[in-house]
């Protein structure tokens, strides 16, 4: 069976697997009429991302054509991209451009169980 991953924007450097992919699997990315094949460097669960371009440590991770976070290690093509090698840089900023209070450290809430 062919395995696929989805690219959303042409400038994206990550794609999302829509099959369970195993290390060594060849995975096809169809985008704008072109089909390109990548080899997964490790297991990529359904719904998780892998890199389609090398991303250096500190480099931008791009999906939907926007920066979604920054790499905390060098990420090679085919490498799994998730919370272990990406930092969430988002802070809610005030009108003066400075972060609003309470974001000095990450205080994740427990899962709500549902969610939108």
């Amino acid at each position: 069976m062919s395995k696929f991953a989805k690219q959303i924007h042409e400038s994206d450097n990550v794609v999302t697997a829509v099959n369970e992919c195993l290390a060594g699997d060849r995975v096809t990315v169809k985008f704008k009429g072109q089909a390109v094949e990548y080899v997964c460097l490790r297991d990529i669960p359904f719904g998780h991302k892998f890199a389609i371009r090398d991303i250096p440590a500190g480099g931008a991770v791009v999906k939907y054509g926007e920066v979604i976070g920054s790499a905390t290690a060098d990420i090679a093509v085919g490498e799994w991209v998730h919370t272990h090698n990406v930092r969430d840089d988002y802070k809610c900023l005030g009108k003066d451009g400075a972060p609003l209070p309470g974001q000095e450290e990450d205080k994740a809430c427990p899962s709500r169980g549902g969610g939108s």
């Binding site: 669960p45 999906k63 976070g69 991209v81 998730h82 919370t83 990406v86 969430d88 988002y90």
Partner: peptide, 8 residues
């Protein structure tokens, strides 16, 4: 499920 950041 695979979402990595809030921005994503």
């Amino acid at each position: 499920g695979g979402l990595t950041t809030l921005v994503e």
